[in-house]
Computed example of a mutant assay.
Amino acid sequence: MAGQTRTAPRGKTSLDRTLQKSEEVAADVQRASDNLAVVSTVLEQELPDEIQVGEVAQAIEHTSQLEEKLAKSAEKLAEVNAALSEEIEKRLEATAERDESQALAEKLKAKIRANGSD
């Protein structure tokens, strides 16, 4: 129908692509956090206590802090992605409702024109 916009299928909108990229980043951040946790654990468990002093001790502590920071960032990204996904769903519903209303309006206009030309 003239003037009617079509709803883009899920996965085709710019918000869907943004969500997909954000989910990929969240997965990367989570993997980095997991890997850093392993490194931190290995350093703490495998290095003798007499070596875990000074700069080495600072590096081990810094590794642990970075792992925690990455884990928190991954959690925040997951929350943002969930909110973004919910917003996409709401927009799709609103767009579908708008499209239905526009289609009904077009039908009514056509009916009025047909009745007016009688």
Rank of each mutant, 00 (worst) to 15 (best):
M1A: 11
A2E: 06
G3P: 03
G3T: 02
R6L: 10
R6Q: 12
T7Q: 09
P9D: 05
K12M: 09
L15Q: 14
D16F: 00
D16K: 00
R17P: 03
T18R: 10
L19C: 04
L19T: 12
Q20W: 14
Q20V: 06
K21Q: 13
K21L: 12
K21F: 02
S22Q: 02
S22L: 05
E23W: 06
E23M: 15
E23C: 06
E23Q: 14
E23S: 04
V25K: 03
D28V: 01
D28W: 01
Q30R: 05
R31D: 10
R31V: 02
R31H: 01
R31W: 01
A32T: 10
S33H: 00
D34W: 03
D34M: 00
D34F: 00
L36Y: 00
A37T: 10
A37M: 02
V38A: 05
V38I: 09
V39H: 08
V39A: 02
S40A: 13
S40L: 05
S40V: 00
S40R: 11
S40C: 09
S40T: 01
S40W: 03
L43Y: 07
L43C: 08
L43P: 10
L43D: 06
E44H: 08
D49T: 11
E50I: 14
V53T: 11
V53L: 08
G54I: 02
G54Y: 12
E55W: 09
E55M: 13
E55L: 08
E55K: 14
V56Q: 00
V56F: 10
A57V: 04
Q58L: 15
Q58S: 14
Q58R: 15
A59D: 00
A59S: 04
I60R: 11
E61P: 07
H62D: 11
T63R: 07
T63L: 10
T63V: 02
S64T: 15
Q65G: 12
L66G: 04
E67K: 14
E67N: 10
E67C: 08
K69M: 04
L70T: 08
L70D: 01
L70G: 04
A71F: 03
A71E: 07
A71V: 06
S73A: 15
S73V: 11
E75L: 09
K76W: 11
K76L: 13
K76E: 13
L77H: 07
L77A: 03
L77R: 11
A78W: 00
E79T: 01
E79I: 09
E79C: 03
N81T: 06
A82N: 07
A83N: 11
S85A: 14
S85K: 12
E86F: 10
E87C: 05
I88W: 01
E89K: 12
R91H: 10
L92S: 15
L92V: 12
L92G: 15
E93I: 09
A94L: 11
E97G: 04
E97Y: 07
R98W: 00
R98A: 06
D99Q: 15
E100A: 09
E100M: 13
S101A: 15
Q102W: 12
A103M: 00
E106F: 14
K107Y: 07
K109F: 14
K109I: 11
A110P: 01
K111L: 13
K111Y: 03
A114F: 10
N115W: 04
N115T: 13
N115M: 13
G116F: 02
G116L: 02
G116A: 15
G116C: 13
